[in-house]
Amino acid sequence: MQNEFFKSKKSEFAELKAYIDSVKNSQGVTMQILQKAQGIFGYLPLEVQQFISDETNIPLADIYGVVTFYTQFSTEEKGKHKIGVCLGTACYVRGSQEILDKLSEELKVSVGKTTEDKLFTLEATRCLGCCGLAPVMVIDDDVYGKLEAKKIPDILKKYQ
């Protein structure tokens, strides 16, 4: 399977192979391999899934089944900055839906999608566990708590 994608990511595939070889003999490591692969590539395109299948002898259908089951795995490339708005109950009752709507309006992108310039991916996340700061938004590793919709445009400017 020597396509363009494979050629352009040689070192990444080498890193993944080294990891697979190191855990191959343990039981039930599919999820860990996928997590590692997503860490390396940022997402899990079919090429990567095929590669994992070839290396582990797990059928591609099974791998694909696992990838599509868990929300953390993505088969699409993500934007440079990931924006997550917590839609846990505590954040929701304190108005996180408004925050999400405002972001969607500002970035002109629907939830789960990436902006055309590949700068932002907007996601609604599950409870992040910092309910004391509700409503909460996370951009990459920066957490914005006790947020108000009107603050959104200024915050986004920092990343543009």
Binding site: L34, D62, G65, V66, Y70, T71, Q72, F73, R126
Partner: peptide
């Protein structure tokens, strides 16, 4: 990897085994 149902014990074990 972000699946609420995996808090259910039989689903959780499936997940540890590397399945859906």
């Amino acid at each position: 990897a972000g699946a609420f149902v995996c808090g259910e014990e039989t689903a959780l074990m499936q997940s540890i085994e590397g399945n859906r």
